[in-house]
């Protein structure tokens, strides 16, 4: 754990008069699992949205592997190595699980329409390879047996995990997980924690938004806390848990402390 992979420098995000993020800075090191927590509406998902180019920051800068992502098209940011999942599941429901992953894997590749049209060997070869890779990822996340089921018909927990597999399909270096455990029972949460560690051990870096404290504290190497759009803590899980400001921020919102 050494090199910085992603760096937010004094990021401010305003919507009209509303300040969603105020001068937020933090960085993520390679192969780290960084937890991002905060009460509802604190600005966590906004952080994801500015990193992935959904919103353009009002002030400050975001650099990924030393290069600014500002003004880059969303799909280019993803191709550059940042992938995400969505808090409210946004799979392509009418595609199978496998197709969901292949689409993330292959659609940005060069050989596109014409070679596909004429069935060139390159295209066939890539097709086979991408399919194998997608199946591999489904197996890696532990949902391999669902490959041929339509995404919309999958059980909820599988859909959440498919979101992760699909994001990994884009071959990212940094994986952003937006509340991957929402709606999970304790057993599923334990399983998810293992999966996240497994993902990290496979060489990925993970930025995790999660409401479940035990999950975040258990799995993260470091935790950043935001409240009202501001960073109020950035430390080891054990330290953060005893931070006065963090405890204050969470008082009065008991449903988040569950």
């Amino acid at each position: 754990m050494s090199e910085t992979i992603l760096k937010l420098q004094n990021v401010t995000m305003k919507f009209g008069g509303v300040v969603a993020l105020n001068d937020v800075s933090f960085e993520i090191k390679k192969q780290e699992i960084l937890g991002l927590i905060g009460p509802n509406g604190a600005g966590k998902t906004t952080v994801f949205n500015v990193i992935t180019g959904v919103y353009q920051v009002t002030e400050g800068d975001i650099t990924f592997e030393g290069k600014s992502v500002k003004g880059k098209k969303r799909y280019k940011i993803t191709r550059g190595g940042i992938a995400r999942t969505f808090q409210n599941i946004r799979l392509w429901g009418d595609m199978t699980a496998l197709e969901n992953v292949i689409t993330a894997t292959d659609t940005h590749k060069k050989s596109g329409l014409l070679s596909g049209l004429f069935g060139m060997p390159v295209s066939r070869r890539e097709e086979r390879r991408d399919k194998a890779r997608a199946q591999e990822l489904l197996d890696f996340i532990g949902i391999g047996e669902y490959a041929d089921r339509l995404a919309k018909n999958l059980p909820y927990g599988v859909q959440r995990r498919l979101e992760i597999a699909r994001a990994l399909g884009t071959e990212p270096k940094l994986l952003l997980l937006d509340e991957p455990a929402a709606g999970f029972n304790p057993a599923e949460k334990v399983e998810l924690a293992q999966t996240i560690r497994k993902i990290r051990d496979a060489g990925y870096t993970v930025l995790l938004i999660e409401h479940d404290m035990s999950l975040v504290m258990g799995v993260s190497d470091r935790v950043v806390v935001v409240d009202f759009g501001q960073k109020i803590a950035d430390d080891l899980p054990t330290k953060v848990q005893n931070d006065k400001r963090v405890i204050e921020a969470y008082l009065g919102v008991p449903e988040d402390a569950s």
Partner: peptide
Amino acid sequence: RRAGRAWESIRQDEDAAELMGVPT
């Protein structure tokens, strides 16, 4: 093939497609 999947993903959720690296 690839193009078919890309179109399909755009039709179903264009924003998600873009964020999954599809040059929509």
